[in-house]
Design a protein around this nucleic acid. Structure first.
Length: 426
RNA sequence: GGAGAGGUGGCAGAGUGGUCGAAUGCGCUCGACUUGAAAUCGAGUGUACCGAAAGGUACCGUGGGUUCGAAUCCCACCCUCUCCGCCA
């Protein structure tokens, strides 16, 4: 959520930054509501103050012997009732305004960072660097991963559609073991990098989704339980960040690092026909997620190390990838700055997103009300939150099935995974 | 799912209509005493909003209601705990 005070103070600057994302943002209606709300608040608090004085006066007079039924107290009661009537008129309007303002604020995306490259669409994203070109292979003799997987019998889509629907997979035998090995390897590596492992709830309530920014705008992207205020989490970022919702942390408790394996669930509404085959776009997929809650002064540096922690997995697996920085037009709703890691998929001869590392600055923290207190100072400040995949497991498996295909049709197991899988080829 | 108990400040725990943002204790911060520490003593110690400031307002699980006045009374909801049942 954006800071209404900032919008009030610099409406033009905020509007310009928002428009870098593309789309129209007119902040004037919001500012008018805000002004009206504050006027009402001033009025209301004056009336309230008088009402409090009367309330106290009545009590005092009765205590010091006035007749509770006498004219003096009757007059105060009348004035009190009068104020109550006036307040009853102001109050609903002010509450409605507050709600309206809040609802508008909740729909506004984060401001892009000053360092985020400007651009309208993903074509203007900026490549930062590439890694592993030496291992990069072309499509010659490469089966797409879904064909390879079916040939090896390590997953099955057709039967999964029977169990659930399309865009679900069942991993079988070595496929299930490989997925499990990848999860263990990723977690072990991130734990070694300083992240505290968490195994959080994967059903989350509406407040949690609102705090991290999936609600109210992206409700159609998540699966919702019919009878409870619970949703299947679209990413572990939601439960992990919300662990600290409505908390005031001591500054020495920061930074907080968590990693977590969870399944993730996405409805993929509006992506019909895209990536219909294989492990790339499923309603349910596994991911190891990284989150950080940090002091604002360190968040830029923390973002860089977060990205390196994600990159380290790809390097250890010797999968060729590139890092791109999203331009302002391609930035996610809550992100101020974002790097995507894209792994090489030889069958398609493209790089595909396998990790997204975002710095949300204080955007989520304001929604989630996650603050910290600097020792010895008065007041509190919003922390910064960061998140990144480390990594998307299904897409990692896809990348391995393609990049590690040998000429004889076997798939070699990356060296670092061999201790986990206790085998060298699939 | 059934029965019961309960939700108050960092924690514990008073408070059942009036001056209560809230006693007391612990914790924490600063100070005094001490060679240092402990103990002791003194002062301070919630959050947010409005306001240039003085100051004002709100918050005792959440939302309504009664009243001149609600932590306290009424209604609804949420959550936690205990026991029973069921269950991985």
């Amino acid at each position: 959520m954006l800071d209404i005070k900032q919008i009030r103070a610099n409406p033009v600057a905020v509007q310009e930054k928002l428009s870098l994302r593309g789309g129209d943002y007119d902040l004037q209606p919001l500012l008018r509501l805000d002004q009206r709300q504050r006027d009402l608040e001033t009025r209301r608090s004056q009336l309230q103050s008088r009402s409090n004085t009367i309330g106290k006066a009545v009590g005092q007079k009765i205590k010091s012997g006035s007749d509770p039924q006498g004219p003096e107290i009757a007059a105060l009661r009348t004035e009190g009732n009068d104020l109550k009537t006036q307040l009853a008129e102001l109050d609903p309007e002010e509450k409605a305004l507050k709600l309206e303002i809040q609802n508008i604020l909740l729909t506004l995306p984060n401001l892009p960072s000053d360092t985020t490259p400007q651009g309208k669409t993903e074509t203007e994203n900026v490549e930062i660097h590439r890694w592993g070109d030496a291992h990069k292979r072309g499509p010659e003799g490469i089966l797409p991963h879904w064909e390879m997987g079916e040939k090896l019998g390590i997953f099955n889509f057709e039967r999964s559609a029977k169990v659930a629907q399309s865009r679900f997979v069942t991993l079988l035998g070595a496929g299930a073991a490989l997925e499990r090995a990848l999860i263990s390897f990723m977690l072990d590596q991130q734990i070694a990098a300083g992240y505290i492992e968490a195994l959080p709830p994967i059903l989350v309530n509406s407040d949690s989704l609102t705090a991290t920014g999936q609600l109210p705008k992206f409700a159609e992207e998540s699966f919702k339980c019919a009878d409870d205020d619970l949703w299947l989490t679209p990413t572990a970022e939601v439960p992990l960040v919300n662990l600290y919702r409505d908390e005031i942390l001591e500054s020495d408790a920061l930074p907080i690092y968590h990693c977590a394996y969870t399944p993730c669930f996405r409805r993929e509404a509006g992506s019909y026909g895209r990536d219909t085959r294989g492990l790339i776009r499923l309603h349910q997929f596994n991911k190891v997620e990284l989150i950080k809650i940090v002091n604002p002064e360190t968040s830029e540096a923390e973002h860089e190390t977060l990205r390196q922690n994600a990159e380290a997995i790809l390097q250890a697996l010797e999968l060729p990838y590139r890092v791109i920085e999203l331009c302002t037009g391609d930035l996610g709703f809550g992100a101020a700055k974002c790097y995507d890691l894209e792994v090489w998929l030889p069958s398609a001869e493209t790089y595909r997103e396998i990790s997204s590392c975002s710095n949300c600055y204080d955007f989520q923290a304001r929604r989630a009300n996650i603050r910290y207190r600097e020792a010895g100072t008065k007041g509190t400040q919003f922390a910064h939150t960061l998140n990144g995949s480390g990594l998307a497991v299904g897409r990692t498996m896809a990348a391995i099935l393609e990049n590690y295909q040998a000429a004889n049709g076997a798939v070699k197991i990356p060296t670092v995974l061999q201790p986990y899988l206790r085998r060298e080829v699939l």
